[in-house]
Design a protein around this nucleic acid. Structure first.
Lengths: 143, 143
DNA sequence: AAAAACTCCTTTGTATACGAACAAATAATT
DNA sequence: AATTATTTGTTCGTATACAAAGGAGTTTTT
């Protein structure tokens, strides 16, 4: 029998949670100075990637629950990071655009994320980085 | 120039968040029938692994914030999953033990987690599983 | 032994997550 | 066209996360 029958250290759920925790923390530290949370930053990049998207479209792109998105969009709006424009064809929804305030530091914000990424995987070889991302992608795209 | 200059799909932060989201969701579905959340289940396994641990010790073992732990332990206690016994040597803390109710389905609960793990990585080859876990571990143990 | 430093846990405030229920609007069906 | 089904976004309730501050107990210093 195993000396560690209930070996939590070999639990992928645990590993994933902790790796995510670490990554989240790393980026959070670099975004705090802008007054942005990780999720707010992600939505903003999503909008730069797809300007004028609706909340529903963003939810699909970023795999986010609509209830969660609702709150994040509210806070981005309150913070002056985005603009909500009513959709003329669909009175239920509105189109979202990064604000001028956001656009001014767009490159800087994206760079923070990119450099954070590099730092996060700094100890991996190029091959490991590629494999790692492939496996993560396989995992979350599953089914 | 890249056709996807702000390529969110190549962001490890995003991948990790989504892989974790998927894993969390998978286990959550299997624990809901017991009335346990993923985190409550993790704490419980931690206690089986280290009975009589204090909240501080659990925090170190599972890399959890003490404030977060406080609430989870409360709910585990309210649900009758654990027992809190005052520490005789240190009046600030208490020792935690899985309750009889928890012990009765211990093997079953651990099996849910193990089978969930297997399912999560079902599409990976044995080699990929090992590499994946090694990389995740390297990542969250960093620094 | 008294003061200072430290540790344990709780509480508060803010920000995700997400299921469930809802109102309003739009699309599909009959 | 009227009914039904679906979609969009909000709100509510519960459960993490975690920084920050506070109270009580312990340990270390002086």
């Amino acid at each position: 029998m195993d000396s560690l029958p209930n070996n939590i250290p070999d639990c992928t759920f645990f590993f994933l949670a902790k790796a995510h925790q670490k990554a989240h923390s790393l980026l959070k530290k670099r975004l705090i100075q802008y007054g942005l949370t990780n999720m707010q930053h992600l939505i903003l990049e999503g909008l730069w990637y797809q300007e004028g998207a609706t909340a529903a479209e963003l939810g699909k792109l970023l795999i986010l629950d609509k209830a969660t998105l609702s709150g994040i969009i509210d806070r981005l709006d309150e913070g002056g990071w985005i603009e909500k424009r009513l959709d003329k064809n669909d009175k239920r929804s509105f189109r979202l655009y990064p604000s001028e305030k956001a656009n001014v530091i767009k490159d800087e914000l994206i760079d923070v994320r990119k450099k954070g990424n590099d730092l996060l995987l700094a100890d991996f070889t190029m091959e490991e980085k590629i494999i790692f991302k492939r496996l993560l992608r396989t995992l979350f795209l599953k089914r």
